[in-house]
Amino acid sequence: MSTSRKPRRRFRRSLGERIAERALALVAASAIGAITLILVFVVREALPLFWDGHEGLALAAPHRYPNYDHPVYVWQPVGYPPKYGVVPLFVGTLKITGLAMAISTPLSLLAAIYVAELMRPRRRAWIKPIIELVAGVPSVVLGFIALTYIAGATQDLLGCTYRLNALVAAIALSLAVLPVIFTVAEDALHGVPLALREASLALGARRYQTVTRVVLPAALPGILAALVLGFGRAIGETMIVLMASGNAAVLDPSPTSSARTLTATIAAELGESPRGSEHWRVLFLLGMILLLITWALDAVGRIVVRRLARRLDPSTDEGA
């Protein structure tokens, strides 16, 4: 017994090594800590809404306020009585995000196809970084661009009643989302093995047939991941919509009417609401909802992407 114990001891890792590993693991746990703290401290400010006697808030349901003849969805937190109908904010968020995705998805995917499939490698090597650079432009700069250039141009072109509206915000937003979708989708397309393209071409397929029937389906998981990422970025974007959307919380599906998003509402109103007030708590609740939306988006996106990847290649294993 004692003879077998000694050598094992001698080969044991030093104390310093073991302490280092533990310490690093502890630091790594801080990422988990951060996301937990974010959830806890946003929820902590929001949840008292539901037990501190804030009856009749009518967050999601239409409500008949005094002087109204029928129930309405209204967001008017400084009115009397304050009205916290969040439906117009959701409509505004979906309208702007949907428009931005409708603009940026076809443009970025087609551009990615051109760069990945039809462009010479050398040219690709400098075109891609240019578009990636745009991904780093601060959103406040894009908001400013919307305000100074895009708003005027769309008004001249379409004759919108309001200078700032959902479409203006959506165009600026697509400038933010486009490079994200482009980069990830281009990587996915470029990552499709050359052997598959060669197999297709050797069977007498045209370029476009190879792209639509082999390359795009094979890259679909990555392309979908790109779209989910872009959608998440669009829904969470604050400064652009705050500066360019006009910020009126109206229930109007028209793209050229004004709109107010969840993010812009928080940014614009939290500064003016007293801590712990009903308004303050509702704003934190909006933040909590945003958090849950992005969370759900991440989860759904991962499940769909994984399923698709497995359908393409059933031999891929679960974990990766």
């Binding site: 990422a31 988990i32 974010i38 969470g236 974007e237 604050t238 940014a267 939290l270 958090l291 988006l297």
Partner: peptide
């Protein structure tokens, strides 16, 4: 956690920083 953190909207970071 890292992945989710990367997807949290920046305005929510503002709420978190304040709270």
């Amino acid at each position: 956690a890292v992945r989710i953190l990367a997807g949290v909207p920046s305005i929510v970071f503002g709420l978190f920083g304040l709270g």
